Amino acid sequence: MSDTKSETWVTERLHDHYAQSLRADAVLYDSKTDHQRLKVLQNGTFGRILTLDDVVQTTEGDNFIYHEMLTHVPILAHGHAKRVLIIGGGDGGMAREALRHAAVEQVTMVEIDAGVVDFSKEYLPMLSQGAFDDPRLNLVIADGAAFMRDTEDKFDVIIVDSTDPIGPGEVLFSNSFYGHAARALSEDGIIVTQNGVPFMQGDELTGTLRAFQALFTDCSCYLATIPTYAGGPMAFGWGSHSKAAREVSQPVLEARFAAAGLTAEYYTPEVHKAAFALPGYVKKLFP
C-alpha cells in the first residue's frame, strides 16, 4: 500500500507489465490464514473488495457478472441439472447463483480454506445472500484436486471457481485434475472453468483447452467483461461429453430462463449465445 495525499491505494501486480490500483477508503479485514493473505477493502465504486495475496478475487459491485456467467450458462444449457459441484467459491457467490435454480437438488462446494468461508460470512454476506444456510448446499472443506481425484459421485455441472494458477490454485489447472473432472461428469455433463483474461494470460486458456480437447467431445470457451478483472474480457473454459448443450437454441434458452423464474443483472439468453462468439485473438489461442 502507498499513501498519497492521505489516500490509500492498493496495487495488484498479477501481470508482469501491467498493474491496476484501487483506492481503499477503508481496510475492513487483513489477516493471513494457513493458505493465503486475506483482505477486505472498501471502495467507492466497487463497494467491498476481497483480495487474496493482494490479487482481486471478487467485489460487491461487479461479482454478479462472474457468478451469473459461470452458473447460468452451463445450468441452462444443460437443461435438467440436478447435481452441481463447485470447486472453490468460498465467498458463497457461486453457490448463491447455482441455488437460485429450484431444479438443482444439491450443490457441493469444495473450498480448501475454511478461513475464506468464515470471514466471507461476516464481511461479505451480500455475496452469499444466505446460500450457506440452504439445506441443498453441501460444504466440504478440503483440497479441490484431492476431492476430484477421490470422488465417486457424478455431477451434471462442475464449476471450477479457482484463483489464478499460482499458489493453492495452481493444481486446479493441471491435466490430471481435468481428467478426474471428466470422469466425475454425468453422461451429458458440463464443466466450466475460470481461465483469466486471455489478452494477458493466453497460456492459461491454451493449456485448459489442450486438456479439454483430449477429454471431451465438445470444448470451447466463452467470454464476459468484468471491470475488476482488467485487461479485456475474461474467458471461461467449456467442456462436455455431448455437443448438444452448446448447440441449444436461443428460444429454448429463453423458455428455460423463464421457467426457472430467474432474475439476473448480466445474464440473458442473448448474452449466453453471444458469449461463444470469439474474437480472432482468442481463437488463435486454441491449440
Results as ranks from 00 to 15, higher is better:
residue 3 D to L: 09
residue 4 T to L: 05
residue 4 T to I: 07
residue 5 K to F: 12
residue 5 K to H: 04
residue 7 E to W: 02
residue 8 T to A: 11
residue 10 V to M: 00
residue 12 E to L: 07
residue 19 A to Q: 15
residue 21 S to N: 09
residue 27 V to M: 11
residue 27 V to W: 08
residue 28 L to A: 03
residue 33 T to V: 11
residue 36 Q to F: 05
residue 36 Q to R: 06
residue 36 Q to L: 01
residue 36 Q to A: 07
residue 37 R to M: 11
residue 39 K to A: 10
residue 41 L to T: 01
residue 41 L to N: 10
residue 41 L to P: 00
residue 43 N to L: 02
residue 46 F to I: 08
residue 49 I to G: 02
residue 52 L to F: 02
residue 53 D to G: 13
residue 55 V to R: 12
residue 56 V to Q: 09
residue 57 Q to R: 02
residue 58 T to K: 02
residue 60 E to G: 09
residue 62 D to P: 08
residue 64 F to G: 01
residue 64 F to C: 05
residue 66 Y to M: 00
residue 69 M to L: 06
residue 69 M to C: 12
residue 70 L to V: 07
residue 73 V to P: 05
residue 79 G to A: 00
residue 80 H to G: 03
residue 83 R to C: 10
residue 84 V to S: 01
residue 84 V to W: 00
residue 86 I to S: 00
residue 87 I to Y: 03
residue 89 G to Q: 13
residue 91 D to L: 06
residue 93 G to A: 07
residue 96 R to A: 03
residue 97 E to N: 15
residue 98 A to N: 08
residue 100 R to F: 04
residue 103 A to R: 13
residue 104 V to Y: 09
residue 113 D to W: 02
residue 113 D to E: 00
residue 114 A to P: 15
residue 115 G to T: 08
residue 115 G to F: 07
residue 120 S to T: 00
residue 122 E to A: 11
residue 125 P to L: 01
residue 125 P to I: 11
residue 130 G to I: 14
residue 131 A to T: 09
residue 132 F to A: 10
residue 133 D to F: 13
residue 136 R to V: 15
residue 136 R to T: 03
residue 136 R to L: 14
residue 137 L to W: 07
residue 137 L to Q: 05
residue 139 L to P: 13
residue 141 I to R: 02
residue 142 A to I: 08
residue 144 G to L: 02
residue 146 A to Q: 09
residue 151 T to E: 05
residue 153 D to A: 10
residue 157 V to K: 00
residue 158 I to Y: 00
residue 161 D to Q: 01
residue 162 S to A: 13
residue 170 E to K: 04
residue 172 L to V: 01
residue 175 N to R: 13
residue 175 N to P: 10
residue 176 S to D: 14
residue 176 S to A: 07
residue 176 S to M: 12
residue 177 F to W: 09
residue 177 F to H: 02
residue 178 Y to I: 06
residue 182 A to G: 07
residue 184 A to T: 04
residue 184 A to G: 02
residue 185 L to K: 04
residue 187 E to Q: 08
residue 188 D to L: 06
residue 189 G to P: 01
residue 192 V to M: 10
residue 193 T to N: 15
residue 194 Q to F: 15
residue 194 Q to T: 10
residue 196 G to D: 00
residue 196 G to K: 01
residue 203 D to A: 06
residue 205 L to W: 06
residue 207 G to V: 02
residue 207 G to S: 05
residue 208 T to S: 10
residue 211 A to E: 14
residue 213 Q to S: 13
residue 213 Q to G: 15
residue 217 T to A: 15
residue 218 D to V: 01
residue 219 C to N: 08
residue 223 L to K: 08
residue 223 L to M: 02
residue 224 A to P: 08
residue 227 P to I: 06
residue 230 A to Q: 09
residue 232 G to D: 09
residue 233 P to H: 13
residue 236 F to R: 00
residue 237 G to Q: 03
residue 238 W to M: 01
residue 239 G to K: 02
residue 240 S to N: 15
residue 247 E to I: 06
residue 250 Q to P: 03
residue 255 A to Q: 08
residue 256 R to M: 09
residue 261 G to S: 12
residue 262 L to R: 03
residue 262 L to H: 13
residue 265 E to T: 13
residue 269 P to A: 12
residue 272 H to A: 12
residue 274 A to G: 13
residue 275 A to T: 05
residue 276 F to I: 09
residue 279 P to D: 07
residue 281 Y to A: 04
residue 281 Y to V: 14
residue 283 K to Y: 12
residue 285 L to V: 11
residue 285 L to R: 05
residue 287 P to C: 05
